[in-house]
Every structure is written in C-alpha cells, then in structure tokens.
C-alpha cells in the first residue's frame, strides 16, 4: 500500500510516528525544493539515511566526524579494490585507524544528523517504498524512533522559536561597536567562525548560509547566538527590499453540544436487517 504525501499536510513527526507504530520496513524518500533525503527503516527502526548532495560513503562520514585524516580519506578514495563500506570498515579497524565503536558512532551520528534535518523541513513530498532497504554493503545501525521523535520535536520547537526570533533571513548583519575586543574573550565554534567571516551589510543571512552549506536551522541558531551575545546586529541589506513576516492564524470557536436522539435498540436492529437485505 502506497504511503505518499506532503510534509505540509503530514509532518515529519507524524510520519515517523506512523512508521514506528506500524513497525514498517522500507525506504522513505523525501524531496523538498532544496533537498532530497532517503531514510531506511527495518521493523520501525531507523537503520540508514542519506542526503542528496552529501557523500554518504563511510570514508566521507569518518572524515567529517574527524576520525580519519583528509590524506587517509584521499588514499582510500583512490583505491578501487575496496568494494563496499563494510569491507572498508573491517580494513580500517584491523589497521588500527579507527575502532569499531568509532565507525558505528560516526554512522549513527550521521544518520541522526540527516533525520533531524527532516524535522526542520516544513514542506516537501514524501513517498514510502515498502521493503526497500539500503544498497548492499552499507553499514546500518538501529535507532529507536521514539528518541528521534522526542529530540526532533525539541529541535522543531527550537526551530520555531528561532524562526519567531529571526523570521527573515533576507536581512544582513553587521558587527556592533568594537566587536574585536569581545570576540577575543568568546569561544566560537568552527561553524560560528565561518559565519562571522562573512558578516557584512552586503551579505544577507540567507547568502551566508548558502556559502557555508548550512540549513536555515543551523544559520538561525548561530546568528541568534551571535545576536544574544551582542556581537552582531541586524541591518537591512544594501540594495535589497526586506519582506514582512507572515501573519498568525486565528483560532476557530467551539460550537455548543447537542443531545443524542432517543432511539430504541430494536430500531437499530431493524435498520441493520434492512441494510443487509439491500
């Protein structure tokens, strides 16, 4: 039975809840105007995920996780005799470059990173293909969806709060007075530094996110932190019209309650008999 629709109508939380409750096995493909992702499930547990445009082979996952060097990653990619990720995992583990735990944790974190992105996509089409599993040779994990839903919902709330605090990404940033003195005393992550390096009234927040391959959620979180720390302030971008934020829907009223009609059991039984005859 097909399972397809749009995240606008059936949210990521609802979708994962359904897959979990129905203990489904198969692959969920989600497509938004910006991203495409695939999530594989076995008996209602998340076992694999991949994001189009991001290399999901083990070598890249380990490199991004900082478990292997760029040089080693390059060497591995140049070798054509390593057939699949499982084989690579065994080779790296036997050679002492990484432990089995490093591999499992890295894959698990990558899968979680991809699935948490799903929660921040307000729209996009999805299709669930029953019994379709990842390609042979990929390393899979087994993640309970309850925890994913809990954490995803928390992130969603954070995302919604950030969206309220920072509704417009088509706005620019500039440093407040004497930011250099304060920056020296604040520890910034690599991602935050990347954003800082692009702060300029000519660059909108959206453009900074695009340069750094960041999602709306990531850039909002970083910019919000910088704003709260008083390091930057929002300014209209040079030569760009600022869009107003969307309105909030009004709640619908609840109508009064009616009484149930007094109908005897025999009447219902007669209706049943009649309908059976039809």
């Amino acid at each position: 039975m097909a399972l397809k629709g749009n995240l606008q109508d059936f949210s990521a939380t609802q979708l994962l809840h359904l897959i979990n409750l129905a203990r489904k096995t198969g692959t969920l493909a989600v497509e938004t105007p910006q991203d495409q992702a695939r999530f594989c499930f076995r008996e209602g547990k998340l076992i694999y995920a991949s994001l189009d445009g991001q290399d999901d082979r083990l070598v890249s996952i380990l490199q991004r996780a900082g478990k292997i060097t760029e040089e080693l990653a390059r060497t591995i990619r140049a070798r054509s005799d390593i057939k699949d990720d499982r084989e690579l995992g065994v080779l790296l583990s036997n050679a002492g470059y990484v432990t089995q735990k490093d591999i499992v944790d890295s894959v698990r974190n990558y899968v979680l990173e991809v699935v948490y992105k799903l929660f921040t996509w307000p729209e996009g089409t999805f299709r669930f293909e029953p019994n379709l599993l990842p390609v042979e040779g990929r390393i899979t994990v087994s993640i309970d969806l309850e925890n994913v839903i809990m954490e995803g919902s928390r992130r969603l709330r954070e995302w919604e709060r950030l969206q309220e605090e920072l509704p417009n990404l088509d706005i620019a940033l500039r440093f407040t007075d004497r930011p250099d003195a304060r920056l020296r005393t604040i520890n910034l992550t690599v991602e935050e530094w990347r954003v800082v390096s692009f702060i300029n009234p000519r660059n909108t927040i959206r453009q900074i996110a695009q340069y750094n391959h960041m999602s709306d959620f990531q850039i909002r979180r970083i910019v919000y932190g910088l704003l709260q720390a008083g390091l930057v302030e929002l300014v209209p971008p040079e030569g760009v019209e600022v869009k107003p934020s969307p309105g909030v829907p009004t709640p619908v009223g609840v109508p009064p309650t009616q009484r149930r009609p007094a109908v005897k059991r025999s009447i219902v039984q007669r209706l049943i008999d009649r309908i059976r005859e039809l």
Binding site: N6, Q8, D9, F10, P255, T257, Q258
Partner: peptide, 20 residues
C-alpha cells in the same frame, strides 16, 4: 493526505456536536 488534517478537524467538530 493533504486532506487528513481537515478530516481530523471535521471529526473533532462533529464529536463536539453530539456524543454519538
């Protein structure tokens, strides 16, 4: 599926009309 949310709202609305 784009109508499911509407279906849920209709269902909830009718349940408030009468406990049938």
């Amino acid at each position: 599926p784009e109508t499911f949310r509407e279906a849920r709202l209709i269902l909830d609305t009718f349940r408030t009309y009468a406990p049938t």
